[in-house]
Amino acid sequence: MTKQIDEKLSAFVDGELEAVEADRLISDILSNDELRSRWANYHSISHSLNGQSVNSEVDLSSSISAALANEPTVFAPQHKKRIFPAALKQAAGMAIAATVAAVAVLMVQPEEQNLFNPGAVAKAPTISSPIANQTVLPVGVNWSVAEPSVASKLNAYLVNHNGYSTPVRGAMPFAQIVSYGTKHSVKTDDSVVLEYNPNGSSVRR
């Protein structure tokens, strides 16, 4: 059973699953927790193999979710695949990424999420996306202190400190910030956020 599912996921990832089957698989992914996490793993594996940036997924998500609703055959096998393997591998990867995003968007109820509201500090909606939950790490996992509130304060100090120091980091001065982002970005209760300001204040909730 598991093996069969794995084969299907793998075929889907490679764009070799028939439309009807693909359609069924998508429904299964949407309704089954275990399958969703398996799918997310597949996604991240295929992703790293393709070596592409993840951001392409969100851009395509709305069009793909529309396509999902109206035209499931969008996932039909791509016969030209063998001719330009590299280019199409990339394209297939993008489509998969887009699909995952579409799944995430569907799970998150898009109508509540469309709060594109520049200039305002809006409250972040509670995240129910299975994909988002996959990558969540506990807050302050790295500081060797027990209380999350202490860790969070230390993070605030540290991000602020980074704005004032010029460590020998060459072209990568923001590397730490990207990395700390993992720890800060997890508080799903409010609109958290990591902000970098060379002048002073730093972590904002």
Binding site: N55, V58, G119, V121, E195
Partner: peptide
């Protein structure tokens, strides 16, 4: 490439 649609924007 993020369209910003699914995201909350926090502006300083």
């Amino acid at each position: 490439n993020l369209s910003g649609r699914e995201f909350t924007w926090v502006t300083d």
